[in-house]
Write a protein that binds this DNA or RNA. Structure first.
Lengths: 198, 198
DNA sequence: TTCAAAAGCAAACCGAGTTCATATTTTGTG
DNA sequence: CACAAAATATGAACTCGGTTTGCTTTTGAA
């Protein structure tokens, strides 16, 4: 069951996203119209919105889909939530398998950083993460502490991610960026673990 | 210079906001139309948008305008940023001079909590705060540490604020909510200062 | 009383997203 | 291969938030 239908759908979706990204990169997120994208991708507007629910989602694919709550939920017994998350990001920094197409990723990041709407849209996506994480953490401690931990953790993760991405956009190689990310991860989790003392 | 003009403007603005809040409370943020609000407030749509730049801003007046960066910037010498902020929220908890009209505040909060768009809009407003705070903190430490501190602090502040507001909406008196807020402030800042150890 | 500036307004416009009715394509089955 | 059912694509019209334009009314000060 190779599925001609499936293949065509995937292909269409990729074409739309690629066309959109190109136009956004050329002329900025706000000045490109959904109609233009649909026309350039040779689909009807209605079809475009069947693949991507919003204009933002054309750019924010895969952003903020980390499942921090899941990582904490399945950690081995005896390991603290913070240890589990630290290990996860350590592993990622050691091998940042970040995307198939590095150039496309950088273009995507540039477009996001250039548009306040997209930046705060990316920010938004952590909001659900935060609540899910708080729910998992609340199984072992009181609700407010869980909420505060979740808030601090998601905010920290967002910060080091953004730093990592900015280095890539600034031209760092994947190896270089990964090496510096490894340092940042330790700093961030040390700060979470031991607090702000200065 | 009493200013008839000024008085009328203020009055119109208040009328629009009040009408909007009432309609939102009755029927939900999403199902009320800007045209309906304008009509009910007896102004033209264009006039409404002269007073409130967006539909969201009809509800989110005064939300997320805390100026954390300012509090840190003007703290007395020798005091740490965290001490300054803790003192600020301690003082607020001791005397939560929260609004002239308690009922209106609670209605406003209910409307916000009921609408995901408004909740994340409120969230968004902390984003600028975060960056401003990071800039101030970066004067005395490296950029990433400053960014991480700012992220943790704003996230924590948002969390205790939300807890406070939810208690008010749930029916707590201002005194009761203030008392519990005082405890929460200590917990939140202890966590920030000493880290997550469990 | 006069007059410029401020405020208000109606109507047309724009772009994101939806609805609907219709047309086309794919697929599974006989 | 034929063909009907199901999935997908489409154009046109629509809704709603927000803007632009060109005009009238109100206000405050000279």
């Amino acid at each position: 069951m190779a599925g001609l239908r499936e293949r065509k759908k995937e292909q269409t979706q990729r074409r739309i996203a690629a066309v959109a990204l190109r136009l956004f990169a050329e002329r900025g997120f706000d000045t490109v119209t959904i109609n233009e994208i649909a026309e350039a991708a040779e689909v009807a507007k209605v079809t475009l919105f069947k693949y991507f629910p919003t204009k933002e989602s054309l750019v924010l694919r895969g952003v903020g889909e980390e499942d921090l709550a899941g990582i904490v939920a399945v950690r081995p017994p005896g390991q603290s939530p913070l240890e589990a998350l630290r290990a996860h990001y350590r592993a990622f920094a050691a091998d940042p398998a970040v995307a198939v197409d590095r150039d496309a990723l950088i273009t995507q990041l540039r477009v996001i950083f250039d548009s306040p709407a997209l930046s705060s849209g990316a920010n938004d996506r952590l909001y659900g993460q935060r609540q899910a994480l708080a729910r998992v953490l609340a199984e072992e401690r009181d609700g407010l502490t869980a909420a505060l931990m979740a808030a601090q953790i998601t905010a920290s993760v967002l910060t080091i991610q953004e730093t990592f991405f900015r280095r890539l956009v600034a031209g760092a190689s994947l190896e270089e960026a990964g090496r510096r990310l490894a340092e940042d991860v330790e700093l961030a989790f040390d700060l979470l673990e031991h607090g702000i003392n200065r």
